[in-house]
Amino acid sequence: MDVFKIGNRIFKSRLIVGTGKYKDLQETADAVKASGADLVTVAVRRVNIIDTKEPLLMDYIDPEKITYLPNTAGCFTSEDALRTLRLAKESGGWNLVKLEVLGDEKTLYPNMQETIKAAKILVEEGFEVMVYCSDDPIACKILEKIGVVAVMPLGSLIGSGQGIPNKLNIEIIKKQSNIPVIVDAGIGTASDAVIAMELGCDAVLVNSAIAKAKKPLMMAESMKNAVIAGRQSYLSGRMDKINIASASSPINGKINN
């Protein structure tokens, strides 16, 4: 049985989806459903005090059925990230979180020094921390040693849709890790998700590629299928590559003059 486990939690789908950038909350909920994901990332933000009747994400996606993974998007210091996740814990009552501490507004590249600092404190406070990180095997090793439950190296920059230009690093990270490796950021289309899964990754996280597709719901389903296909392909063990042709049809019995 091919079970996907993060910490002590088991998830049905190896596709994790983000809930940002959609047209409206209905489209967000429909896309999550079409993707088959049972773990979704969410952001923590101020309630609209002026209009408290405004619909909330929770009115559209039931946290009892789909696990919310609160993130620290937009946090540039470990202090900000800690504050956000402590609030998230009180809001949802669970301790599985996605830590991301950004280093630069233009690239949204993770600041690993601040990320590692925050990860240490969160683990000590009893959080189960999944960490958005650079595709640096050493940083991933340090995070695993701290006790995080998953590392989430970027395929490429957040929202860029550039796929996974550095497959070698992702492969090295997967081979050395004893915790789930989830490609986060950069997935642009279904084939990128397949590549991540074929490299052996345990899951992928996709947001913009679905939300910004011309037909988000169809892309959500495409991503679902891609992750399943990539995982099966990885588990099947691909054929060896050779440099000459090898006929697929037998020569024996062929009609001739």
Binding site: G18, T19, G20, V47, P63, S91
Partner: peptide
């Protein structure tokens, strides 16, 4: 005082 909730995010 800060009052926060979950919203869509990646």
């Amino acid at each position: 005082v800060e009052i926060v909730t979950f919203i869509g995010g990646g």
